[in-house]
């Protein structure tokens, strides 16, 4: 464990909690892409099946349980409890255009052709593009609630911090996982446009509104 991975995990946890609180406090999931939340739940489910087969540490297990629990709680909020506030008309990204290539690639490029390893690879590739429906929805509505931008900031920051974690681990432990690194780079690059808007607008107290 190093400072980048720890702060990355905490940033990820913060994002997940911020989203849950936003929906719970405002009793509304307006502006939230249910499709991205479905993809994140699929990412966690396919990646954390090893909860059933191996124990790494109390931290590892508890964080995985929290991530999975919050992901499904968010889905429950979006598609059941606060379903009336879900803006389906703007959440129209075709997720099959993500699932098919990612599914195919995870069979072609992986470290080991075993079920758990292919599922892990699938979750890594899927996570790198899972935010696209959410970013697409914001581009369609032309704006995002400030609390939603904080959610996106911490979510994007977490994988950026993981990139530093991988540099650290390569330098000090000689460990590197090319699949995770390339996917993590793609994931972080997808946030660059949002990071620019977040830093130049939201942090200056303005609302995030895209040139519609």
């Amino acid at each position: 464990m190093n400072v980048f991975r720890l702060t990355g995990d905490l940033s990820h946890l913060a994002a997940i909690i911020i989203l849950l609180l936003k929906i719970w406090k405002t009793r509304s999931c307006a502006g939230i892409s249910g499709k991205s939340q479905i993809l994140f739940a699929v990412v966690f489910t396919s990646r954390y099946l090893d909860l059933l087969t191996s124990f790494i540490s109390l931290y590892n297990t508890s964080m995985k349980v929290i991530y999975i629990g919050c992901a499904y709680a968010t889905l429950y909020f979006v598609y059941m409890k606060f379903k009336a506030t879900y803006d389906g008309n703007h959440d129209t990204f075709r997720v099959e255009f993500l699932l098919v290539p990612v599914g195919g690639l995870s069979f072609l490029v992986n470290h080991d052709f075993s079920p758990l390893e292919i599922l892990w690879t699938f979750s890594i590739y899927l996570e790198s593009v899972a935010i696209l429906p959410q970013l697409f929805m914001i581009s369609k509505t032309g704006e995002a609630e400030t609390i939603t931008t904080h959610y996106l900031f911490f979510l994007g920051l977490y994988r950026a911090l993981y990139l530093f974690n991988w540099i650290w681990r390569f330098y000090f432990e000689g460990f590197f996982d090319m699949i995770a690194i390339v996917a993590g780079l793609v994931q972080t690059i997808l946030y660059c446009d949002f990071f620019y808007l977040y830093i130049t607008k939201v942090l200056k107290g303005k609302k995030l509104s895209l040139p519609a």
């Binding site: 995990d9 191996s54 790494i56 540490s57 590892n60 995985k64 991530y67 470290h111 974690n165 460990f175």
Partner: peptide, 10 residues
């Protein structure tokens, strides 16, 4: 190639 290290990252 076999990825010997366990998946210790989240």
């Amino acid at each position: 190639e076999e990825n010997d290290l366990p998946k210790d990252e989240l």
